[in-house]
């Protein structure tokens, strides 16, 4: 899981801005499609992801099986479609947990300041000093195999960066004039946080979220590839690539299609995040 944060390009001529808007629409449409895969895979998949058909193993891409079949004769396209729930769903879950925990933690630190702030943030520093992927592997491995342990491991890894980001944002906004104005007008602290502080962090957070869902997906499927994730027969994408490894030299499609879907999904989130960032800065 590397941190995909492409620097915004400097030139904001009208042409690139227009192209940026195109990217946003395209990526947003793709996100809708991905959401459909997550929620209603049954309606979209051509077949069943679990039906074994040993007589039909390792058939290459053809009209009945666009992505070919795997070592148990299952339709890879159907498996990919049903797998979205496990892969994308888990990535979203990881980031959601990270955001919720990070927001509460970071806001507390910024709000109370002083020793509590120092203590909380030093803890965050410790977490950020871990070699993240190794740490996630170790945690996932210690918890035993399964999608849940991987989700726990990655959430454990991800919240500190949000805690730090939210703390920074809340701190700077707390110094902002209209917060001071609101306080003088007698607004309660909780109200201020709810109505003034949190909405302000949205735009930056949105960019970060978009990029991080992609990052989480890469991390999750990477761990699954190492056997630290979904267990068979779940059609999780990383797991499928892992299973394909031993047949990679004979049945290329088995490795290529699920991997390509991961790649394109992540690419989509990267482009969307970048386009959102450009819009929020210009």
């Amino acid at each position: 899981m590397s941190v995909v944060e492409l620097p915004a390009t400097a030139d904001t001529t009208s042409r690139t801005r227009k192209a940026g808007r195109g990217v946003v629409w395209w990526s947003a449409a793709t996100v809708v499609v991905l959401a459909a895969l997550v929620f209603i895979p049954g309606l979209l998949a051509p077949g069943d992801p679990y039906t074994l058909d040993i007589g039909n193993r390792f058939t290459g891409p053809q009209s009945g099986n666009l992505f070919g079949t795997d070592d148990a004769g299952r339709d890879i396209l159907s498996r990919v479609i049903h797998g979205a729930r496990y892969s994308i769903g888990s990535a979203v879950l990881i980031i959601t947990v990270a955001v919720v925990v990070g927001t509460i933690y970071g806001s507390l630190a910024a709000w109370y300041g002083g020793i509590l702030d120092r203590l909380l943030m030093r803890t965050v520093d410790v977490f950020l000093a871990f070699p993240y992927l190794v740490f996630a592997m170790a945690v996932a491995a210690s918890l035993g195999r399964g999608l849940t342990s991987t989700i726990v491991a990655l959430s454990l890894l991800w919240w500190p960066s949000y805690a730090r980001m939210i703390r920074g944002q809340v701190k700077s906004i707390l110094n902002d004039y209209h917060i001071r104005a609101a306080t003088t007008l007698g607004a309660r602290r909780g109200q201020i946080l709810r109505w003034h502080v949190i909405p302000h962090t949205y735009s930056q957070l949105l960019v970060r979220l978009t990029l991080d869902i992609g990052n989480a997906l890469v991390a999750l499927t990477g761990l699954a590839f190492l056997g630290l994730g979904a267990t068979p027969p779940l059609p999780e994408w990383g797991r499928m690539v892992a299973d394909s490894k031993q047949f990679a030299l004979t049945a290329w499609w088995y490795a290529v299609f699920p991997g390509a879907v991961i790649f394109l999904t992540v690419l989509n989130f990267v482009l969307l995040g970048e386009a959102l960032r450009k819009r929020s800065t210009s």
């Binding site: 590397s2 995909v4 492409l6 992609g214 890469v218 499927t221 990477g222 590839f225 990383g238 690539v241 892992a242 394909s244 490894k245 990679a248 030299l249 290329w252 490795a255 290529v256 991997g259 390509a260 991961i262 790649f263 992540v266 690419l267 989130f269 990267v270 482009l271 970048e274």
Partner: peptide
């Protein structure tokens, strides 16, 4: 820059292995 940051490492590795090693035989698998 964009594609490289989005591509899953394990997939790149497998692709390189399939194409450059298994198909073309330029490198050991």
């Amino acid at each position: 820059a964009v594609a490289g940051s989005a591509v899953p490492v394990f997939w790149v590795g497998l692709l390189l292995q399939i194409v450059l090693a298994a198909r073309l035989g330029w490198f050991p698998v």
